[in-house]
């Protein structure tokens, strides 16, 4: 087997909250140009895993590898330095700042040989990236408080593209969105993938998972519970892995239509 080296790989990763082991010995990979969905029931440990990769939590066991080399991700800044960008379940935008300022949050550009912000340069570059992603965003110099949920999510996703990040993690990016806005965000995710980024999406919505992902990793009670492919496996297979009922009878199928 001559696999490409995964852009991001987790080996036996464990994170404990006191005595509660959330993710336990979890293996996970994602490769450049691939969208992997991470699914599992509430409390399965998905968000915890994302926070570990994003540098918000230290892991208690196992290792994280980037391009095959082990790394220690101690803070969100270190994660960004490694090219990891995270879009959180609860949006991490500053309502009082405009679109451009949010895109550049924490990485503001300065004019050469000066302490002053390069406001115009940032705005122009942001406009170019957003046009390139064909994201539907209105004027870039309005506070984001005036935007819709989908537009706000689009900003959060575009931020990843703007930074030339290599790994993008999205924790339930469409949880609060309507149908059209969900499609818009998934379009954006596909565009990131087509640019060669490695994308990880967490979702509870099986229809969306099958629409957006190339591969599906299931977590159950903090442990790996199977790998699936949308073309090969059915929704029922994935739901069975999530709920832990491998022999799926008709009754369960009815209770979990997705």
């Amino acid at each position: 087997m001559h696999a490409v080296t995964p852009t991001l790989e987790l080996r036996d990763v464990t994170k404990r909250y006191g005595h509660v082991a959330a993710p336990t010995d979890v293996d996970f990979t994602v490769t450049a140009g691939e969208v992997v969905a991470l699914v599992g029931d509430n409390g399965a440990g998905k968000s915890t895993l994302v926070k570990a990769i994003a540098g918000s939590h230290r892991i208690d066991g196992g290792e994280i590898l980037i391009d095959g080399g082990p790394v220690v991700i101690g803070s969100p800044t270190e994660a960004s330095a490694l090219g990891i960008e995270t879009v959180y379940q609860d949006l991490a935008l500053c309502d009082n700042l405009d679109v451009t300022a949010n895109l550049y949050l924490g990485r503001e550009r300065r004019r050469s040989r000066s302490l002053l912000l390069d406001q115009e340069g940032m705005q122009a570059h942001a406009a170019a990236v957003i046009a390139d992603l064909a994201a539907h965003l209105p004027v870039l110099d309005k506070p984001v408080s005036a935007l819709s949920g989908g537009q706000r999510q689009a900003i959060a996703v575009s931020r990843a593209a703007l930074w030339g990040s290599r790994i993008v993690l999205l924790d339930e990016p469409t949880a609060a969105l309507g149908v059209a806005q969900t499609v818009m965000v998934y379009d954006l995710i596909h565009r990131l993938r087509d640019r060669g980024l490695a994308v990880v999406v967490i979702s509870h919505n099986m229809a969306d998972v099958f629409a957006v992902a190339d591969r599906i990793t299931v977590l159950r009670l903090g442990r790996n519970a199977g790998e699936f492919r949308p073309g090969r496996d059915s929704t029922d297979d994935v739901v069975a892995a999530i709920t832990g009922s491998r022999e799926l009878d008709a009754a369960v199928r009815k209770e979990n239509p997705r």
Binding site: Y88, D95, L97, G106, E108
Partner: peptide, 28 residues
Amino acid sequence: GVLMTGTNFGRHVYAIGGNREAARRAGI
């Protein structure tokens, strides 16, 4: 005014006041 609207520092002050957690996650 220049400090608050024209520099990194000022931008970070606005960001923290707007959403402290977002600012922290953005590496500020």
